[in-house]
Design a protein around this nucleic acid. Structure first.
Lengths: 196, 196
DNA sequence: GGACGTTTTTGATAAATGTCACAGATTTAG
DNA sequence: CTAAATCTGTGACATTTATCAAAAACGTCC
């Protein structure tokens, strides 16, 4: 039997807990693969989010559209990241976010129900998801810290956190992630270049 | 035997999972109570954080002091909240944060090691902490969203999230939490009063 | 009840960031 | 390969927010 579960996810899990092949097969059975073209949506405002998604190729952005039509990006998801709207997933209420593909993207998804079942059958899996959640919590805390600093410092932190991935994100999306306008970001980049 | 564990925590746990009295006693044995006077520190910059703290009375603020000496508050902790520096706790590296009492405060603390032991003995406890973490994740995500909006909207969201607790926090601390100056916050409050 | 320390308010001014308009540059689709 | 669409850079100007200084309000301790 050919395993459908991507190596990336298997490795990612293995970094946190070890599963035997029977357990891996259980996990695998709960996963579905989905492919998105650029600008396709994984989730739209008003939908109830029912899945956690693991990115195996490509990139996504999670954003809100505010009453003035402005997009506020709160999160990016690239290879090896889990992404979902936890708020909607846990409350089972309509999401206020869009999750959209920035490029051609492959994800594995697992439903809330399947995840709950799996957690009962494989308690160690809860530890894996707990550790993933801890990591993302720390990231969010760091982002909160930097959002309270001036624009230039926000951009520098973005570079540190997203490193090589910066080139895959358009400048307007970086700006929307940092809470500044694209014009301001453009000027900041110009100044940084002049200074170095 | 008199139980040292505060009712607040017992109720808080009971809202998520149910423990029998033997299990409760195990948890209790791992907890220590600490009392802080106003302005006492639970954690200082440079220390490695080794505990998770549950507030049973009073309030705390978690903040960074930036290179210019400005305080950036990323989080408050009041009754019924767990508070810690997860970044330091998980990495066992020195913290960049202070956690300071805003008023006379009682907390229960549990060490990282004891928590790990307890999680093995009482697997359900992991679910409790997972759910607590999920809740705080959602809060942080909401804060990230609002930090990308203008000052007035940040203040309004603060009011919604912290409601009645606002009166227990000085205005300069609210400002430091919202990433604006106290002067700006004062003017915003003035305008809101004039408009309503 | 006063005196002290702290916090909040207010005003004048400076700095940072946003807005709008448009010209280049780059990417995409046919 | 070219035309259209999208993204990025730049300038002039508006708006928001920060800074600094001082006065008013508040709290606390004798």
């Amino acid at each position: 039997m050919i395993t459908a579960m991507n190596e990336l996810l298997r490795d990612h899990i293995a970094q946190h807990i070890s599963l035997d092949s029977a357990e891996l097969q259980l996990v695998e059975a709960a996963l579905e693969q989905r492919t998105l073209k650029k600008n396709d949506y994984l989730l739209s405002e008003g939908q109830v989010c029912n899945y956690e998604y693991f990115v195996i190729k490509g990139g996504l952005r999670q954003y809100e559209v505010d009453p003035n039509g402005r997009e506020i990006i709160i999160h990016f998801g690239f290879e090896n990241w889990w992404i979902t709207d936890k708020q909607s997933l846990y409350s089972q209420r309509p999401s206020i976010y869009y999750i959209e593909a920035l490029e051609e993207t492959d994800v594995l998804r697992i439903s809330r129900e399947d995840l709950a079942c799996l957690s009962v059958k494989i308690p160690r899996l809860e530890r894996y998801f707990h550790q993933v959640l801890q990591q993302s919590s720390v990231m969010w805390q760091t982002k909160i810290l930097y959002l309270q600093k001036p624009a230039e410092q926000r951009y520098l932190m973005f570079r540190e956190m997203y490193g090589s991935i910066e080139q895959r994100i358009s400048q307007q999306h970086v700006a929307a992630y940092l809470g500044i306008t694209r014009e301001t970001l453009s000027r900041i980049k110009g100044q940084l270049l002049k200074r170095q």
